[in-house]
Amino acid sequence: MSYAYLFKYIIIGDTGVGKSCLLLQFTDKRFQPVHDLTIGVEFGARMITIDGKQIKLQIWDTAGQESFRSITRSYYRGAAGALLVYDITRRDTFNHLTTWLEDARQHSSSNMVIMLIGNKSDLEARREVKKEEGEAFAREHGLIFMETSAKTAANVEDAFIDTAKEIYEKIQEGVFDINNEANGIKIGPQHSPSSSGGSGGRPRPQADGGGCC
């Protein structure tokens, strides 16, 4: 299971918006209709391909409950990507986005890619938050936006993969310091140093080259 890069993700958002279901749909391709409260943090992983490169996603699914908030804060720093999830059928989960975003921005590395996700798009009849509102929020705060359904799997793949693409592009542009693992990015054991720097990236002295495995 060799990979070119490893990206760490976190999934954040209010309780019951479907964070664990998104993860389960992405890693196991199934849907769990019963809401089982996440305790602390749960872990999942999957391999994807971007630009012909194998990329391993390590995803930490956090508990949405307020009581776990302090624990989940510990995960911001080491993540390269965050999926900020709200429930389109519950306005309050949308209203809390600002708090989540502040929390994330405060504790994470400034380069963390945040994808805003309006989940439960299958429940159109019970919709309380318009798609346009989500788009506007994302535009205002510089996030990528997508509406998904963990139940029907609509856009779930895209949500995870598009985030990875964004991170990948940032690596290519040299924005991320890939040698600092605290950024949530790791170069795979098979990755040769010549390609790791990226075409436009700063040439870095690879004193400890290959020591990342």
């Binding site: 760490k8 602390g40 943090v41 930490w60 624990i71 510990s74 995960y75 080491g78 693992e181």
Partner: peptide
């Protein structure tokens, strides 16, 4: 403390 254990793992503790 499993919560702390998980965070340590997240912070590349194993490596």
């Amino acid at each position: 403390n499993s919560n702390i254990q998980k965070i340590v793992a997240f912070e590349n503790g194993f490596e």
